[in-house]
Computed example of a mutant assay.
Amino acid sequence: MSVFFVTGALLVVTSAISAVSNIVELFTDSATRVFAEFAGTAAQAPIGPDGATVTVELDSAYLLADQLPLASVVALVLEQAVVVAAVATVVTSLLLVMWSILRGRVFGRRNTTLIGTAATAGFAGVALAPFFGNMGANGAFAAISGGDFDNVVLSANLAQLFGIAFLGALGTTVFMVGDRMQRDTEGLV
């Protein structure tokens, strides 16, 4: 169990360091690097024989924009904040549940609430981070193309969203039923 506590703490610290690094890069570099997804966009890449250009279809790339609109900068900062908040909330909630279990208290309203909180934070993080990232990418597209290139692609990993929702609902239900069974059977043994 101590491995989970250390790993969880490292995960929170690593995500915070990465977010701070990305935000600092956003404000200090001359060309801001923004992740963008493309929808059926053809491009030329020097991957043919002797470096000849070949037509490829872009799925994703990093855009280098000299200047981003303020709304895009705010969206990219919010993306990093959402990631850190989601990771910290999920890890802290689950570690508190583990701590409670180690102390002999498995079922109870507190653990049920913590499981629900972890699921909600995970779901919100997986849904909101790509949303804010897409807002930043749209600003980069507009800055680079002068508004001529329209490539609005918003994607969220539906498998992750479904998995988090399913596991969150399952975990919350298990802890609610366990809490109810524990209250109903108190004093019987």
Rank of each mutant, 00 (worst) to 15 (best):
G48V: 10
F175N: 01
V106R: 06
N111W: 06
F131E: 09
F175I: 00
S30E: 14
A36F: 02
I47G: 08
L58P: 01
V174Q: 07
F38A: 13
T172W: 05
A127T: 09
P130F: 05
R109Q: 14
V13C: 10
V97G: 01
A137M: 07
V189K: 11
N22W: 10
S30F: 03
F5G: 09
A127C: 08
F4Y: 14
A140V: 02
V189Y: 14
I144Y: 01
V153W: 05
S18P: 01
F162G: 13
Q44K: 13
A42K: 14
L161S: 04
G136L: 04
V106Y: 07
A42G: 12
F162M: 13
L96S: 09
F162T: 13
A71D: 14
A165P: 06
D184C: 01
T92C: 10
F107P: 06
D150G: 07
T53N: 15
L11I: 12
A127S: 12
A85F: 09
F5I: 10
A127G: 08
L95Y: 10
V13D: 04
T172N: 01
F4R: 15
V77H: 04
A119N: 03
V13W: 03
N157G: 06
F38Q: 09
V6T: 12
G146L: 04
L78Q: 05
L96I: 11
G48R: 08
A16I: 04
A19E: 04
V84C: 10
V189I: 12
V3F: 14
G178N: 02
G147C: 07
A165G: 13
V74R: 06
G139N: 00
S93D: 07
F38D: 09
T55H: 02
